[in-house]
Amino acid sequence: MGHWPDSNPFGARRIDGIRVTGEVVPALRRLEVTHTDLAKAVSDHLPVTVTYESADLA
């Protein structure tokens, strides 16, 4: 999820994203958002880690 204050009238939501081409989609394995107190304290964006399996790239 994104990282907006609780008072945001639109609610919790992502404000950025990961984009890939159609050729890369089969290699995409996991997307993980680091949602810790430290991550929220140091930035208005939460770190995102994307895992790919390079052997499955077209």
Results as ranks from 00 to 15, higher is better:
residue 40 K to G: 03
residue 13 R to Y: 08
residue 45 H to N: 05
residue 8 N to D: 15
residue 31 L to V: 15
residue 40 K to V: 08
residue 56 D to W: 13
residue 55 A to L: 05
residue 2 G to I: 03
residue 5 P to C: 02
residue 56 D to S: 12
residue 38 L to I: 03
residue 14 R to T: 14
residue 55 A to W: 06
residue 25 V to M: 09
residue 38 L to K: 11
residue 1 M to L: 05
residue 16 D to A: 15
residue 18 I to M: 04
residue 28 L to V: 03
residue 36 T to C: 07
residue 50 V to T: 08
residue 1 M to E: 14
residue 46 L to G: 00
residue 7 S to F: 00
residue 57 L to H: 07
residue 32 E to P: 07
residue 12 A to Q: 13
residue 22 G to L: 12
residue 15 I to N: 13
residue 30 R to S: 05
residue 4 W to C: 01
residue 45 H to V: 01
residue 38 L to Q: 10
residue 43 S to H: 06
residue 46 L to T: 00
residue 16 D to K: 11
residue 16 D to G: 05
residue 28 L to N: 02
residue 25 V to F: 11
residue 32 E to H: 06
residue 38 L to P: 01
residue 42 V to A: 14
residue 35 H to N: 13
residue 10 F to M: 06
residue 20 V to P: 05
residue 11 G to D: 06
residue 14 R to W: 13
residue 1 M to K: 15
residue 12 A to Y: 10
residue 47 P to E: 02
residue 33 V to W: 07
residue 4 W to Q: 06
residue 7 S to G: 03
residue 19 R to H: 15
residue 13 R to Q: 01
residue 4 W to Y: 08
residue 25 V to R: 14
residue 56 D to I: 07
residue 16 D to N: 05
residue 19 R to Q: 12
residue 6 D to I: 09
residue 43 S to A: 13
residue 48 V to N: 05
residue 14 R to S: 14
residue 25 V to L: 09
residue 42 V to Q: 11
residue 47 P to W: 09
residue 13 R to G: 03
residue 9 P to I: 03
residue 23 E to Q: 04
residue 22 G to T: 15
residue 37 D to K: 00
residue 45 H to R: 00
residue 22 G to Y: 08
residue 16 D to Y: 12
residue 21 T to N: 14
residue 27 A to M: 11
residue 39 A to P: 02
residue 26 P to D: 08
residue 46 L to V: 01
residue 9 P to Y: 09
residue 51 T to Q: 11
residue 55 A to Y: 06
residue 8 N to H: 14
residue 31 L to R: 08
residue 52 Y to W: 03
residue 29 R to V: 03
residue 12 A to G: 10
residue 53 E to S: 03
residue 58 A to T: 12
residue 49 T to S: 07
residue 20 V to R: 02
residue 3 H to Y: 11
residue 5 P to A: 03
residue 38 L to C: 00
residue 41 A to H: 15
residue 47 P to D: 01
residue 5 P to G: 09
residue 20 V to K: 03
residue 41 A to Y: 12
residue 21 T to E: 10
residue 7 S to N: 08
residue 39 A to K: 01
residue 36 T to G: 01
residue 7 S to E: 14
residue 10 F to Q: 12
residue 28 L to G: 00
residue 9 P to F: 03
residue 36 T to L: 04
residue 11 G to P: 04
residue 37 D to M: 11
residue 37 D to V: 08
residue 18 I to L: 15
residue 43 S to M: 08
residue 10 F to C: 05
residue 43 S to K: 07
residue 47 P to H: 06
residue 55 A to G: 07
residue 38 L to F: 09
residue 11 G to Y: 02
residue 4 W to P: 06
residue 12 A to W: 13
residue 24 V to S: 13
residue 29 R to P: 03
residue 49 T to I: 05
residue 43 S to I: 01
residue 14 R to M: 12
residue 30 R to M: 13
residue 17 G to S: 13
residue 26 P to G: 00
residue 46 L to I: 00
residue 6 D to L: 09
residue 13 R to P: 00
residue 36 T to Q: 08
residue 56 D to L: 12
residue 39 A to Y: 00
residue 33 V to Y: 08
residue 3 H to E: 09
residue 32 E to D: 13
